[in-house]
């Protein structure tokens, strides 16, 4: 075949736009990370490199507030992600391994509901719900709301993983006189582990990052990291906020990196 004069796949300018896209996505994050290392009291001028604002986060005048907020955030994220992942794993087993059944489509709709309803609407609805049953707002209301909206985020990678595992392994186990329970716990769950870890980490980040729903259902005086940061930013962006943001940003990226590396083991079961 004659060679073409040009490559039909590539368009001039697309590489540049892709680089622009990455620049747009990363530039604000990098700018904040850089300015968090600024020695100056003012966020407007650069006075040289320093870690003083990181020290300020842990020992400064607002450190007590941030410590409580961080502890709340992490405790809620750990519990919410654990419960949501358990619920999602059980649900995925029924949805993927349970054959065709009447409630399947409805169940899928219910599981993906938090993804379809705008977050602010879920926030309003949850607030109204807790209020109408007289449930006092506080850490527990935040936790319950987080469990609910974390379920679809845990469910998606878990069910994707389960679909990629053929059920021949469980059949073989049962042919060899494993009980149903053993086939589930000894065969299916270990094979599912990368999907479960991936789902757990995503649910964890989603919970850790949530602002809107938390802001609605939290009680007065109860803060998580995002609501504390939002409150502080309303008074003006201060260097210590940039330091705390940079740490949270780094933590999220680390989690996604781990989730990605774990799910890569999917390729070779």
């Amino acid at each position: 075949m004659a060679t073409r004069r040009y490559d039909i796949k590539s368009y001039s300018g697309f590489l540049q736009i892709t680089l622009l896209c990455l620049f747009v996505l990363y530039a604000p994050l990098i700018v904040v990370a850089v300015y968090s290392l600024n020695a100056s009291e003012s966020i407007a001028v650069w006075e040289g490199f320093s870690l003083r604002w990181y020290a300020d986060v842990f020992t400064g005048s607002e450190s007590a507030k941030f410590k409580v907020a961080a502890r709340n955030s992490f405790v809620i994220a750990i519990i919410a992600a654990s419960v949501a992942t358990t619920i999602a794993t059980l649900a995925a087993t029924a949805m993927v391994r349970g054959g065709k059944f009447r409630l399947r489509a409805w169940s899928f709709g219910l599981i993906s509901l938090p993804l379809m309803v705008p977050e602010i609407v879920t926030a309003v609805a949850t607030l109204i719900f807790f209020n109408s049953i007289g449930f006092e707002r506080g850490l527990l209301t935040i936790l319950l709301a987080h469990i609910a909206f974390c379920i679809p985020f845990a469910y998606l990678p878990i069910s994707a993983r389960m679909q990629s595992i053929e059920d021949t392994y469980e059949q073989a186990a049962q042919d060899l006189y494993a009980t149903k329970r053993q086939a589930f716990t000894k065969i299916l769950l270990p094979l599912m582990l990368p999907g479960i870890i991936s789902g757990y980490l995503l649910a964890f980040i989603i919970s850790l990052d949530d602002f809107i729903i938390t802001n609605f259902v939290k009680g007065a005086g109860v803060e998580t990291l995002p609501t504390a940061i939002f409150g502080a930013v309303k008074q003006g962006i201060k260097p210590n906020i940039m330091a705390i943001s940079t740490m949270l940003l780094g933590f999220s990226i680390l989690m996604v990196l781990i989730s990605y590396l774990v799910s890569r083991t999917d390729k070779k079961p």
Binding site: I87, A94, F101, F129, K180
Partner: peptide
Amino acid sequence: TYKEARNWLLLPAWITLGFLVL
């Protein structure tokens, strides 16, 4: 195997999402 169990497996999701979202 999962046919009998599937409603029980889905129950926690139904309860949580039914009560806290729907």
